[in-house]
Computed example of a mutant assay.
Amino acid sequence: MTNSRAYSIAIVDDHSLILQGLVGLLSRIRSYQVTGTFTRGSELLAFLETDPVDIVLLDISLPDINGIDLCLEIKRIAPSVIVLGLSNHTERSVILNLMQNGASGYLLKNIDINELEKCLDLAMTKQMVFSGAVQEIIANPSSTDLPLLPKLTKRETEILKLIALGRTSVQIADELFLSPLTIETHRKRMMSKFKTKNMMSLIKIATDNRLI
């Protein structure tokens, strides 16, 4: 890709060995330059506040935040940045959830340098990009794929966290300055949304998927 300047890339991955390998790999592609590497999502967000980049390569499993949630935060801070998932996670639901949160593509870590360069070039032309292996995953849903989870509103998240802490509807209503009837309505709506029969099942799903 011909360009007067090298496009800047920030990478976040919780394995420093992976980071070193990616920096080494990307140093062989002249049109791109790694300007920051991070092992925690919070470090990347702090960096983006003052140092804009063209592309963020994002792992899914991080010690302080799920990469899917982090993608949303990145797009909030820097709406124009191109976020590409770069992970070993091959679950179709993970890939689609990341795209739903604003990512422009998803690559598996087994990608080679030629395909990586091609994907980066396509991403810079505002196209959605997937490595070959990811295209196959998206095109061929597996019976073990998890369905896309519904989204919780800010208020629902607030209420569900308090329910998980053992608060009653009356206590939650007092705390949030709402009526107990409103809390009960939220409870029923959340159970219906997630197709669960009780709050314990809902709390488990929300906890397992880091929704609360």
Rank of each mutant, 00 (worst) to 15 (best):
Q33I: 11
S31N: 14
A78F: 03
A123N: 02
N110Q: 12
D54F: 09
G36Y: 02
S80T: 13
I82M: 03
E43V: 00
K109R: 15
K126N: 14
T35H: 11
S31F: 12
N101S: 09
I82F: 03
N114S: 11
D54H: 10
E43Y: 07
I113W: 01
L96E: 14
E91M: 13
G21L: 04
D112H: 15
D54P: 02
D112K: 08
Y106D: 08
P63K: 13
R76L: 12
L22I: 08
T90S: 15
E49G: 10
G85V: 08
L58S: 07
P63I: 12
L116D: 02
S87M: 13
S104M: 05
Q33W: 05
T35W: 11
S42Y: 01
I95N: 05
S93R: 14
S87T: 15
V56D: 01
S42K: 04
N97R: 12
L116V: 12
Y32I: 07
R92S: 04
Q33T: 15
I82D: 07
E43T: 05
I111D: 01
R92M: 06
Q100T: 04
V34R: 00
L72E: 15
L48N: 07
V23M: 01
G67F: 00
L48G: 03
P79S: 09
R92I: 13
L44P: 04
E43N: 05
T50H: 10
T90P: 03
A103Y: 05
E43P: 01
L120K: 04
V81M: 06
G36V: 08
I65L: 11
D69G: 10
P79Y: 08
T35K: 07
Q100Y: 10
M99D: 06
R92G: 13
T35G: 09
I113V: 13
L107D: 10
L86G: 05
R76Y: 01
Q20A: 14
L96W: 08
Q127M: 01
L107M: 15
I82N: 02
I55K: 04
E49M: 12
S93T: 13
E49T: 14
R40T: 05
C71D: 00
V53L: 00
D59M: 01
I82Q: 04
V53P: 06
G24Q: 14
E91A: 14
L108N: 07
L107G: 06
G41H: 07
L62S: 06
I82P: 00
C71R: 00
